[in-house]
Design a protein around this nucleic acid. Structure first.
Length: 444
RNA sequence: GACCCCUUCGUCUAGUGGUUAGGACACCGGCCUUUCACGCCGGCGACACGGGUUCGAGUCCCGUAGGGGUCGCCA
């Protein structure tokens, strides 16, 4: 039988990082096994259920690259969907729930109580077979001893989570329920419900939770807790996927950096951990940088555009050559615009503190000569420039720095930047000499 | 209050009876280097505690402590 898994988020207005990780594990398992990944929207709570809230989820999943084989095609609950086991919005499945509730009542497994409908829950402990946690014997709590029968339909007629969740998993033919460990205890209820519905429960895999760095429960306000935060800072989605995959799952060797294809290849349920993990923003950022460094140029360029880099009227070749010198240097993509600004302006903005040193009188003579050397250089490429500069430094008996600092300051105006020779090659001889002349003018 | 899960460097983790307890992030040195970053080398740093079982325990059992979750006419 083919694996069918699902992600069943509730539209709360944001996609929690823990939810994203749950979606990822389900998706990876489906892709690993060649099964189906179903997306179902649990929008029974009408108050916070808006088209925008649904879009946040759909867009978040799309951004991560977690495509669903069945589920909504858009954010309209009554609109189009993909797959023949729909509707995929719980708000549209009222009749299905009613039918099952009726059947339960007829079998004497559900009854009315103060306007609500309760499920006649078994009074004995239930063994939960879990692919991650093993056989968990779930006994009744003291409150459940007093009232074991839980509400499945509220007095206002709305079916409750436990009921709809089970019915949907049943109707949609879900074979593996992979979800957060916060549902482990509730699974006893679900198993009883499946049996009452004359169905074998699916396999369960409860995955550990993601906590804050201090070990407390992550809520949407916490640092890094919401997926849109990472989207808005223009993270590389593959990096988020990679980082999230390592929270609660391990490839069991020392692999850290993995492509999505590798994750699909290697992901499986037995390697899931049992202990909760804490979200480490710094490691996430490191991983993002690692992925960003190796992004193909078209995507890196796209990132540059998104983060506000102004290319002016530069040519494609120039833009891409310029960005290539930045890609393995800039760790936070938000810093790129400032970092590469000198490439795309006519006159550089000079950092006076740096200029005071770089353009000091003692450097002038060498700088004048350097200009002359560069003006007559046969090839304006990094290697010849480097050789020429070093040869000149030796000839003049000065340190390389004495020539490099004024050159860098003239070309970029700032202390930090790409490799000097690379950057000059990109700028080209004309721009470099023009900037040298502007610097020379300052030196008097 | 009850029930369930968990416990290896600060963090993510490897480890399934015999290891100098390994890797990654972070941090600290050094090298490389025009700056920054990368890279390389090195350092810091962990088996929660107490009992067992065993020739031998991070690995198995029990207990304690700590953390997390659940017990709702929320999902």
């Amino acid at each position: 039988m083919s694996v069918r898994v699902r992600f069943a988020p509730s539209p709360t207005g944001h996609l929690h990082i823990g939810g994203a990780r749950t979606a990822l594990f389900n998706w990876l398992y489906a892709r690993h096994t060649g099964g189906q990944f179903v997306l179902r929207i649990e929008d029974t709570d009408e108050e916070r259920n808006t088209p925008e809230a649904i879009s946040v989820i759909l867009e978040g999943l799309r951004w991560l690259g977690l495509d669903w084989d069945e589920g909504p095609a858009g954010n309209d609950p009554t609109g189009e969907s993909k797959g023949d086991r729909g509707p995929y919005f719980q708000s549209q499945r009222g009749e299905i729930y009613a039918r099952h509730v009726e059947a339960l009542k007829e079998k004497g497994l559900a009854y009315e109580h103060e306007g609500a409908i309760r499920f006649r829950m078994q009074r004995e402990a239930i063994t939960i077979p879990d692919l991650v946690c093993g056989e968990v014997l779930r006994d009744l709590t003291d409150r459940e001893q007093e009232q074991p029968d839980f509400v499945i339909v509220r007095s206002d007629g709305k079916p409750v989570f436990h009921l709809v969740n089970v019915i949907d998993d049943l109707e949609m033919g879900i074979t593996h329920v992979i979800r957060g460990e916060d549902h482990l205890s509730n699974t006893a209820k679900h198993i009883a419900l499946f049996r009452a519905l004359d169905a074998e429960p699916p396999a369960f895999a409860h995955i550990p939770l993601i906590l804050n760095s201090d070990g407390s429960k992550m809520s949407k306000r916490d640092d890094g807790a919401s997926l849109d935060g990472w989207q808005q800072t223009h993270c590389v989605p593959e990096a988020v996927v990679n980082y999230l995959s390592l929270l609660g799952w391990s490839p069991k060797d020392d692999s850290q950096m993995m492509t999505v294809a590798e994750l699909i290849e290697r992901f499986d349920l037995p390697q899931i951990n049992r202990a909760n993990a804490r979200f480490d923003v710094e490691k996430m950022q490191w991983m993002n940088y690692e992925h960003m460094r190796y992004l193909p140029m078209d995507r890196y360029r796209q990132l540059a555009v998104e983060t506000g880099v102004d290319f002016g009227n530069a040519t494609d070749d120039y833009i891409e050559a310029a960005l290539a010198t930045c890609q393995n240097k800039v760790k936070q993509i938000g810093d790129l615009a400032e970092y590469c600004a000198f490439y795309f302006c006519d006159a550089v903005e000079v950092d006076e503190a740096m200029a005071a040193k770089a353009f000091s009188a003692e450097h002038k003579e060498g700088f004048v000569k350097l200009r002359e050397v560069f003006a007559n250089l046969e090839s304006f490429e990094p290697k010849p420039m480097e050789s020429a500069l070093k040869a000149l430094a030796e000839e003049l008996g000065v340190k390389i720095r004495a020539l490099v600092m004024p050159a860098r300051c003239a070309c970029t105006g700032v202390k930090i930047g790409p490799s000097l020779y690379d950057l000059m090659a990109v700028l080209g001889r004309d721009r470099v000499l023009t900037r040298f002349d502007a610097a020379l003018a300052r030196m008097g």
